[in-house]
């Protein structure tokens, strides 16, 4: 059982340097690929360097790519960001697809984000535009001068028509109709209904 989450830093979503308001700037500045020329654990890294690294560098002219061979050490990806963060990734026994995936991750993130728990999925500088809600928003100003206890305010909002009320209404309608028409017409209408 891990208790690492107890000591995890938490925070709120922020973007460095107002990124994306005018234009988007890629935050990854340097990436270093370290590998061994003979060791088996670096095979994926070597394949990636042979096949895809030039394409990656061409696609991302803003990122400096360093390749650093070293003897009998595991393959490593290191990204350095505009805000000074440095992300170190061990790529032992990873194949070239894995490495290209991790490199994409390094490219698309704003800094080393692995150890921050987000408390909100939203950040705003202007929390309210129409003003915060109060119990008096969208209320008639008569409430200011009402005296309490108030019969109107104490009544429930949704009193349904009771069966008796319905019957009384029906009866009244019938009376109205009877006044206006002869009995035959009324009977006909009843049948039609």
């Amino acid at each position: 059982m891990s208790n690492s989450h107890l000591f995890l830093k938490s925070g709120f979503p922020r973007a460095p340097l107002q990124n994306g308001i005018g234009r988007y700037v890629c935050q990854l500045q340097r990436v270093t690929l370290k590998f061994c020329k003979n060791h088996g654990s670096s095979r994926g890294m070597r394949e990636f360097i042979e096949n895809h690294l030039v394409d990656f560098a061409k696609e991302n002219p803003g990122v400096v790519v360093y390749v650093k061979p070293r003897r009998h050490r595991g393959p490593v990806l290191v990204g350095e960001y505009l805000n000074g963060d440095r992300e170190w990734l061990n790529c032992r026994n990873a194949n070239k697809d894995d490495i290209s995936k991790w490199l994409q991750l390094l490219k698309t993130q704003n800094g080393s984000s692995s150890s921050l728990r987000l408390r909100k999925m939203w950040h705003t500088d202007v929390p309210s535009i129409q003003g915060p809600w109060t119990p008096f928003t969208l209320r008639a100003p008569e409430a200011n001068v009402a005296t309490y206890p108030n019969a109107d305010a104490s009544r429930p909002l949704d009193v349904e028509q009771s069966a008796t009320d319905k019957l009384i209404e029906l009866f009244k309608q019938q009376r109205l109709a009877d006044k206006n028409k002869s009995t035959d017409e009324v009977l006909e209408e009843k049948r039609a209904e």
Partner: peptide
């Protein structure tokens, strides 16, 4: 879109 990243490690 300004960032695509992974969350912290959830256990």
């Amino acid at each position: 879109i300004i960032e695509k990243t992974l969350t912290h490690t959830k256990t």
